[in-house]
Nucleic acid binder design. Sequence first.
RNA 1: GUGGUUGUAGCUCAGUUGGUUAGAGCACCGGUUUGUGGUACCGGGGGUCGCGGGUUCGAGUCCCGUCAGCCACCCCA
Length: 449
Amino acid sequence: MIQPRTLKGFRDHLPAQALVRERVLDVARRVYRSYGFAPIDTPALEYLEILTGKGSEETDKQLYRFTDHGGREVGMRFDLTVPFARFAAQHVNELGLPFKRYHMATVWRGENTQRGRYREFMQCDFDAIGTTSPVADLEMVLVVHDLLVAIGIERFKVRVNDRRVLAGVLGRLGLAERATGVLRSLDKLGKATAEAVAAELEGQGVAGPAVATLLEMVALAGPADEVLGRLHDMAGDGPGTAGVESLRGIVAGAAAAGVPVGRVVVDPGIARGLDYYTGIVLESFLDDLPGLGSICSGGRYDDLAGLYTKQPLPGVGASLGIDRLLAGLEELGRGGGPETPADVFLAYFGPAHLADYLKIAAALRRAGLAVEFFPEARKLGQQLKLASKRGFPAALVIGGDEFQAGTAQLKNMASQDSTIIAWHGDADALAAAVRVALGRPGSPARTSG
RNA sequence: GUGGUUGUAGCUCAGUUGGUUAGAGCACCGGUUUGUGGUACCGGGGGUCGCGGGUUCGAGUCCCGUCAGCCACCCCA
């Protein structure tokens, strides 16, 4: 016997989790589309040269790579941004600019695992390229906000900052050359203590007063107006000011779009390790699980596809880490749920009325209800027990007695109540009555979005 | 990748200073006169103690390796 097992960092998804997962994906799809982002897809495998050298040296190490049957050097995508850059360079002429796309797909990274960190996971990216408009920046924030709200999360924060502000401050401190290292150290503040970060900065050769200024900057918190005012003072004139003004626009725009005050927070501590960001950067955290890390991050970049085309493609985008979010929801006790996607369990009493059951099931489906018709004529008690375990909201019991009387028994599995429906052989009438009983009157919902 | 920690039935765990056929609760299957579920009672299936070596008369219990989970570093979703 071969032992059934899965690779480190790779997982199976059982129905209860897979249903939550698909629900979140549906929500993300709906929200992205509601802003006009169009779906795209790209291959899981790319030529190795497409993937290497684009990310950091770190991603090169984590890359799953091999030689295919045709002797080609290939790699599995480790994010959706690099394939999108290739895609954009290859298809700009067909796409037209600006172009907004979303892409929800699996990516692979051969790094060490941890809760919420896997070797195979899914990202839900959305980007707008070919525009430097502040509106595009604002939309990113709005999408992230709408997305988390639509998923059903109330307690979260979208933290925004602007690389130009950081650059301005670093420039005044004479640290422009060492920006990457300094930002990386500052990025640790959430986890490490201020003392540790200060020590690390000094280790990099940053002077004491500069360290103090940096720590003061990243510790800024409170009303956006005050934070931005202080940042303005610290960043001085030039690009730093542009960054501050841009953030001011984000805060004002979010308010205008109806985002509750306090949901979008200006946080000078958000730096993002990735060094290709040039403008706004954003991360989002669950209030109840700050240690989980950012579940949706992104920012603005000057040029997406410089490695693949001469045409400059500035853009702004972000990515929802659905697997990390799901790990968080589960930890918050929101991972459980029904194990079936169906609305109605139709019990089976035997072949005598098989044709009738099939008609009834078909009518229910026409009415927009998902039905599981049990394929075995087991004892009714067993069937109901299974239906209950699976989390069906309702069960339809129609045996010899019911067919005789022209009725049906609709059981509410949660409350154990049952109602008798008279249908007299009219399956569509029965389906309509079931719809009403399940609290979904009217015509079947049209599937859109 | 580095360091630490854990690994006994589907799940949560017990398993005495290494010693006869490895236990419990929940879950699962069946039954309590054959059309009604989450409660009660009865019965049942299921574990080569992650895997592989080693020490020993004898290892779930000690040692090494390996695989996997978790935590920290790193990086990030």
